[in-house]
Design a protein around this nucleic acid. Structure first.
Lengths: 129, 129
DNA sequence: CGACTCACTTTCAAAATTAAAGTGACTATG
DNA sequence: CATAGTCACTTTAATTTTGAAAGTGAGTCG
């Protein structure tokens, strides 16, 4: 679990989850760590959606503060870090799958199969008909 | 389904979903429409988290544009509207439940049982230990 | 030495959020 | 009939967050 570094808006679990994950970038970082083998700052930044470096930096800090992500140096001089989900972070997989399923059904996005490790259904370029 | 009024950041279903629902307020509005019997502007605004009127107004417009919410006048002179989820909007229930479950387990929020129509597990005031 | 890489941080303009006040169409009260 | 109140917003202005770009520091490579 996690230290309460944030004061939550309310006692509602949904509101609390949105307080910490409710923005356009955080869950994309989690997605890349979870499924796409991206673990360095550079790899995470290079994703299709092009997160700005300052935002990636800030989001990684938040995820670490929440205990969902941990980093370890994979090299000294200069020190370079590898980011990975903690066990608690991996608990977000079901949530990610649910979001993906909804987006696929309603917004025409692609479907990634974590089992197969690849996209198994195409996205429509501009969304549904 | 929905007209593509937005250009999505990518073909990823998660990114697309975050493009339309990825903020701190939209899913709280959906929560209130889905489970808490709040259907007027006033009722939605009066929720615990205190959304600002201009944001509620803008979010309702977006949800209507997406086809997830519809409104009907429940009175003329002056015309007053009642907002409700469409069938497509109701498809968000599983997502809401997943978010709630995660927030309950990891952030110490309350658990609402839609079947029972009430909160069945307490929230810890400031989050988990 | 000079060029390059990686992991950031800083800067600054633009966009989003917040809180408060204002508006328009009425209804109810004195 | 004038005033107060309700509801559903919109407008305004201050603050915060975001986004894009440039800069920094530690080091490697040629």
């Amino acid at each position: 679990m996690t230290q309460p570094q944030t004061k939550y808006r309310s006692r509602c679990s949904i509101a609390r989850t949105l307080d910490v994950l409710g923005d356009k970038w955080t869950l994309l970082v989690v997605r890349d760590l979870m499924w796409h083998g991206k673990h360095t700052f550079q790899e995470l930044q290079a994703s299709e959606e092009h997160i700005a470096a300052n935002l990636l930096s800030e989001r990684l800090k938040r995820l670490m503060a929440l205990g969902l992500v941990a980093r370890e140096a994979y090299q000294d001089r200069p020190v370079r870090y590898r980011y990975a989900l903690t066990e608690e972070g991996r608990s977000l997989e079901a949530l990610l799958l649910q979001i993906m399923g909804w987006g696929h059904a309603h917004l025409g996005g692609g479907l990634y199969d974590p089992q197969a490790g690849r996209t198994v259904a195409d996205a429509t370029p501009d969304g549904p008909l």
